[in-house]
Simulated assay, not measured.
Amino acid sequence: MSSTQYHLLHLYRARQLGEPAPPAPGTHDWQVVREWRDHRQFRAAVAAGRPARVRWLRGWWRSTG
């Protein structure tokens, strides 16, 4: 079953149950790539003993203030 067919099946199921529709395949791909890159940079900084800059922490800090 392809990802498109899987998505259509879940759209149908969600509509039958009155639930919100799931996101389309590939919707969050760039976010996953950014988080993976940030995690690699964080691990490299920690291993080298440098202070780590983390994107999610910066966003969290702004949202709490």
Rank of each mutant, 00 (worst) to 15 (best):
S3I: 10
S3A: 13
T4K: 15
Q5F: 10
Y6E: 12
Y6P: 01
H7R: 11
H7F: 15
L8G: 05
L8I: 14
L8K: 15
H10R: 15
H10T: 05
L11G: 08
L11R: 14
Y12M: 14
Y12E: 15
Y12P: 00
R13I: 10
R15D: 13
R15G: 11
L17K: 14
L17F: 03
L17S: 13
L17N: 13
G18M: 04
G18R: 04
P20W: 02
P20C: 08
A21D: 08
A21N: 05
P22E: 04
P23W: 07
P23C: 10
P23G: 09
A24D: 02
A24H: 07
A24P: 03
A24N: 02
P25G: 09
P25C: 07
G26H: 02
G26V: 00
G26E: 02
T27G: 02
T27C: 05
T27D: 06
T27V: 04
T27P: 01
H28T: 04
H28K: 02
D29E: 09
D29Y: 02
D29M: 02
Q31G: 12
V32T: 09
V32C: 09
V33H: 08
V33Y: 05
R34L: 07
R34C: 06
E35V: 00
W36K: 03
W36L: 01
W36Y: 01
H39E: 12
H39D: 10
H39R: 11
R40A: 12
R40M: 08
R40L: 13
Q41W: 06
Q41V: 02
R43E: 09
A44Y: 01
A45D: 14
A45T: 01
V46R: 13
V46I: 11
V46T: 10
A47G: 09
A47K: 12
A48K: 09
A48N: 06
G49I: 07
R50F: 11
R50C: 10
R50L: 15
R50W: 12
R50S: 11
P51I: 03
P51D: 14
A52T: 02
A52K: 01
R53Y: 11
R55S: 11
W56Q: 05
W56L: 04
W56R: 05
W56Y: 01
W56C: 05
L57C: 06
L57S: 04
L57I: 13
L57Y: 13
R58Y: 00
R58I: 00
R58M: 02
G59K: 05
G59T: 02
G59S: 04
G59D: 11
W60Q: 11
W60Y: 12
W60E: 11
W61E: 14
R62F: 08
S63T: 10
S63Q: 13
T64K: 12
G65Y: 11
